[in-house]
Design a protein around this nucleic acid. Structure first.
Lengths: 153, 153
DNA sequence: CTTCATGCAAAACATTTGCAGCTGG
DNA sequence: CCAGCTGCAAATGTTTTGCATGAAG
């Protein structure tokens, strides 16, 4: 995981290079994406931004994360009955560990497994192969009954 | 993949055992789930059923697949910007290969990979660990430009 | 200045729910 | 019979879109 300042600079530079404008709202979103170790939803980003820029709208945040995803700068994790979550630090597919009680999403480092998945991707006769691997379960905090902050169906 | 007749009997027996009623609509849904090699959506099941039972409603199909999922008899594959897809033949998690052009979903048999995923699941300090592994790409038919039947964002 | 971004509200879409009436066992 | 199922319509929740206003470069 890169240093938040470095990552923020990379993101702003990338937008400028491509001719996109750097509004205060956009910088605020980028700052949150670069700094967050977790995988925030648009709603969570929006809630953080409202502190500094109370008039910011949800649609603006949605539009920026969609743009960043098209540019390959964020990884979007979509879920059927919950909000999308975004990884602004590592846009390439990697395994995640998801708590079905509190909704926390952690990165998992499983080099052997990742290598095997890369191999399988190459062996397929499909073009432009990507993948997604999620583990689901109840995290240790939720097992002992510590109150949850963000429940997740 | 079991014989469709055998699977249909297993499903009807299971519902009866648990005290659920076997209406004509339900049998029609079960028949489609047991016979389909693919992974139909509720909408696709509904379209097939309307031929025999034109008054059947979408809600009824939704309610039955939800029940079957709770009973552990079907595997639900949810997608953020598309309909859920259902596997009525193999309810345990297994890798899938999804064409991003035509939306076809195929089962993948990767024993070594599955074994490694089982091991990883056990090593986690999470409880009740499950997983999901999807590969995405463009299938060989779509690569040569054969017209698609069910596009899928 | 000119183009692009913002923000509001409405639309889009899959899925769920409430409820009156029907029907399987 | 009557608990549980059906089907309609309305509600839900997230994401997208249209458009007039505003600001970046």
């Amino acid at each position: 995981m890169p240093d938040p300042q470095t990552r923020l600079k990379a993101l702003t530079d990338r937008l400028r290079e491509q001719g996109y404008r750097l509004t205060p709202q956009r910088v605020a979103v980028l700052r949150i994406l670069a700094a967050s170790k977790g995988h925030p939803s648009v709603e969570q980003i929006y809630d953080q931004i409202k502190v500094q820029f109370p008039t910011t709208s949800l649609a603006t945040v949605y539009k920026l994360v969609a743009l960043l995803r098209e540019m390959g700068e964020v990884l979007q994790l979509g879920f059927p009955n919950a909000s999308n979550r975004y990884d602004g630090n590592n846009p390439s597919p990697h395994p995640h560990l998801i708590c079905t009680m509190c909704g926390e999403i952690r990165d998992l480092d499983l080099p052997a497994l990742s290598g095997m998945i890369q191999q399988a991707s190459q062996d397929l006769d499909y073009r432009g192969v990507s993948h997604r691997l999620d583990f689901y379960g109840i995290c240790s905090r939720c097992q002992v009954g510590i109150p949850q902050t963000s429940p997740h169906g």
